[in-house]
Design a protein around this nucleic acid. Structure first.
Lengths: 250, 250
DNA sequence: ACTAATTTGTACGTATGTATT
DNA sequence: CAATACATACGTACAAATTAG
């Protein structure tokens, strides 16, 4: 609320396991996404940021370097630190949500690719969610959602193999979960529940979601059922929290 | 899924601004909340964790020390590191959600206290959300939700002052937003939208939510309207991500 | 009661990262 | 681009408490 005043309210924590430059980089990234620097088109001068955060200018420079590495800003001598990318993808969640496909509402150029698929035995969690026996055959599908060529979601989905044995092939052919379902004889389905938590990015996230280490990942566990309430899909989707926002339409 | 195997799959990131001990502390905290160590009632031995994460035993010790500071574990010489607290509060979000009060479904002993309240001029964001003019008078209320004496949510809410000028007093008297609304002449309201993001904890979070620095905070921006669709409350609620999960019932 | 194995606690040394001046 | 101070991480070794037999 009270961001950007004269005093040094933008507090950062010292010596607690998270380096100052990382905290500052996270804050600036969020500020950019929130459009706080939209008027100028660039972030405040390094010495201004240093004063706001109450740190040395070198520390701010480390933060800006990290953001430049991510392609979010670009520092130009004499001009300042220009904002190159300012995104915040919005993922709506509703009864009709199909977001394991990686659908972003306002994403300009969206794309979903199948990374891997396999038939495996249901783990404890998957079996409990899909209400099948532990060890039952399930199809696991891993998909990556992109918006404007940037990865914005990484989903692992499980389907009961007895009913949706060919879902992966159908998905690869059609590029759509909904269309793949149709091929497998399911015409409609609804999003039953979605559980949301947040964790620090893991190794797999860094690679797939192109994150810098220490980033925050939103984790959504979702269950889709057919119109009779029978579970058809359980999925765990991971979103980069710095550029993704989940909107719940109740 | 595949946690606890022989190899060192539990990957952590080196030299990226987040200390290894913090990453490991976060992972262990999550594992405890997920009930992965329930059988033993304690976490694996330090040298086992060190092997799993591929770090030195000292680094694991730093992580466990941080968790001990939070009251989650307690290390006892010769016995091991015992799990003292294992919580994960679930916040349901639906059309009828009233979670700015800090309502947890399965929380045993829940409580909501009013921290501060004031009348102020609406900022750009608040005005846009409440569909009123920038600078209009609004009541700001800050509340802290507790479950079993542990803070689990911190909400800042704004109400149009012309309609709900006495909401803070009514809330303090009744201890319930719904009851306070009734006193102000509003009998029913619905949760219109909820937007969820996640950020690193800020200074205020550390104090109010009793978090250790570097922790992750879930941020929910929510809008309540009356039955005519007129906005009556905009709130920003912050949850400690390590022990809170949002469940969206669509 | 004793011993061995297991597990945490403590200490020292070294190297590198972080942040300020 | 220093020089300095402190935090982080590793390696090794041994002490102290608990548990298993």
């Amino acid at each position: 609320m009270d961001i950007g005043d004269d005093r040094d309210q933008l507090t950062v924590q010292r010596q607690n396991g998270v380096a100052l430059w990382r905290q500052i980089a996270d804050r600036i990234r969020t500020s950019i996404a929130n459009g706080e620097y939209d008027e100028a088109g660039k972030v405040p001068a390094e010495f201004v940021l240093a004063a706001q955060f109450g740190v040395n200018r070198h520390t701010v420079r480390s933060a800006l370097q990290a953001l430049a590495q991510e392609g979010i800003v670009r520092s130009v001598q004499g001009r300042g630190t220009l904002i190159m990318r300012k995104e915040r993808i919005n993922f709506p969640i509703s009864k009709r949500t199909r977001f394991s496909q990686g659908v972003g509402d306002q994403a300009r150029e969206k794309q979903s690719v199948l990374l891997r698929s396999a038939v495996e035995e249901a783990s404890t969690e998957v079996a409990a969610r899909l209400k099948i026996a532990v060890g039952s055959q399930v199809v696991r599908m891993e998909t990556l959602g992109k918006a404007d060529k940037r990865p914005v979601s990484r989903a692992t989905s499980w389907f009961p193999a007895d009913r949706f044995g060919g879902i992966a092939e159908a998905y690869e052919k059609t590029g759509s979960i909904t269309a793949a379902y149709r091929e497998q004889g399911l015409t409609d389905y609804i999003r039953e529940t979605t559980e949301v938590t947040a964790v620090h990015a893991e190794n797999a996230d860094l690679a797939d979601l192109a994150l810098s280490p220490g980033a925050i990942v939103l984790v959504a566990r979702a269950l889709n059922t057919d119109m009779d309430g029978v579970p058809v899909q359980f999925s765990i989707t991971r979103f980069p929290a710095d550029i993704v926002q989940l909107t719940i339409e109740t």
